[in-house]
Amino acid sequence: MSENVESEVGVPQALRRNIFTTALDAVYNWSRSSSTWPVMFGLACCAIEMVATAAARYDMSRFGMEVMRASPRQSDLMIVAGTVTKKMLPNIVRIYNQMPEPRYVIAMGACATGGGPFKDGYNVVSGIDKYIPVDVYIPGCPPTPESLMHGFMKLHQKMRSQSITNVNWYNKSYTGEVPVPILGPDVIDPREIPAMSKAVRLAREAKE
């Protein structure tokens, strides 16, 4: 901190060694990015590498991220670690909705990013980003702990680049809720229902 700023805000001379002045964004983002708590949530193979990342050799706690919360309500980050199946999809969206803002999502591995090797399966969603917004994608099948940590770095970088003046979670009209998909004959996205019904109605009318 430069002397000038401190004298501008009027810090007494005697306290200048104890008080630091900085931008609010910097402190806010520094504290957020140094204590990003992931939700304890694993889907498939990638979750095992996530466990390995948390374990002794790679040690996620170096980034203040070892506090894996079992409840989404206490966490900032969801690591979608594994294949997203249609049957699991409503639950994942619900977990996302339960997380308080600001919340971040990492799509870990090929499956969460785009379906991976199982993409053409009848019960597989080709990428979680079709339903919830993703901040960082990590390639690999499964990504090694090193690449997961690289993903963390990227996420921290993103967090530090945000500004309190324009982030959307202080906007009163913003909820960030994602409508929970419905398990019908196949997964129904509530946002698509009017379009689907309209298509069926038009087809029926054309027949008549």
Binding site: L43, A44, G82, T83, T85, K87, M88, N91, P117, F118, D120, G121, Y122, N123, V124
Partner: peptide, 10 residues
């Protein structure tokens, strides 16, 4: 079935 990845069909 929450991780049914259609191993056999694939």
């Amino acid at each position: 079935g929450y991780l049914h990845r259609n191993h056999e069909k694939i």
